[in-house]
C-alpha cells in the first residue's frame, strides 16, 4: 500500500516536471523569436563581426542589464531575456523537485536539490566570469 502510494506520487511528479520543462522551453523560445524579429528589423544592414571575442562590447551581459534593456524595448535585450528564461527553466525544475521530495519526506534528496541550487547560485556571482 505504501509502495503504491509512493509510485503514484512519483508518477504525478514526473508529469508535472515534464510539463514544466516543455512550457519553459516554449515560452522562452517564443520570447527569443519575438526579440529576434525586432532585433532584425532595427539592425538590418549593419555589418556583423564576430571574428574576435570582444567581451567589453557585450551590452546585455548581466541580469540587471537585461532587465534595464527590456524596459527600452531593445530587440537584443528581449532575446537575452528569453535566453535567461531558458537558462532558468532547468533551475525551476530543481526548485520544483526540492518541493516534491519535501512532500515525499525524502529529506536526503531535498538536501541534494539544495546543494545543486547553491552551486548554481555560486555561478550567478559575476566575478567568476572574469
Amino acid at each position: 500500500m505504501a509502495a503504491s502510494k509512493e509510485n503514484m506520487n512519483d508518477k504525478d511528479i514526473q508529469v508535472i516536471l515534464g510539463t514544466l520543462l516543455r512550457a519553459g522551453v516554449i515560452i522562452s523560445m517564443t520570447i527569443v523569436l519575438i526579440g529576434g524579429i525586432i532585433f532584425l528589423i532595427h539592425q538590418n544592414g549593419v555589418i556583423t563581426d564576430y571574428k574576435v571575442f570582444k567581451p567589453e562590447l557585450a551590452g546585455f551581459s548581466s541580469i540587471s542589464a537585461i532587465f534595464k534593456g527590456l524596459l527600452t524595448f531593445h530587440g537584443d535585450a528581449i532575446v537575452q531575456f528569453g535566453i535567461l528564461m531558458l537558462i532558468f527553466t532547468p533551475v525551476a525544475r530543481i526548485v520544483f523537485a526540492i518541493f516534491s521530495f519535501l512532500i515525499e519526506k525524502d529529506y536526503l534528496y531535498v538536501l541534494i536539490g539544495l546543494i545543486i541550487l547553491s552551486i548554481i547560485t555560486i555561478s550567478l556571482n559575476g566575478g567568476l566570469a572574469h
Binding site: F53, S61, I83
Partner: peptide, 10 residues
C-alpha cells in the same frame, strides 16, 4: 558565459 559576454543575442 552570460556574465562574460559570450552569449551574443545576434
Amino acid at each position: 558565459y552570460l556574465h562574460r559576454g559570450q552569449i551574443d543575442p545576434g
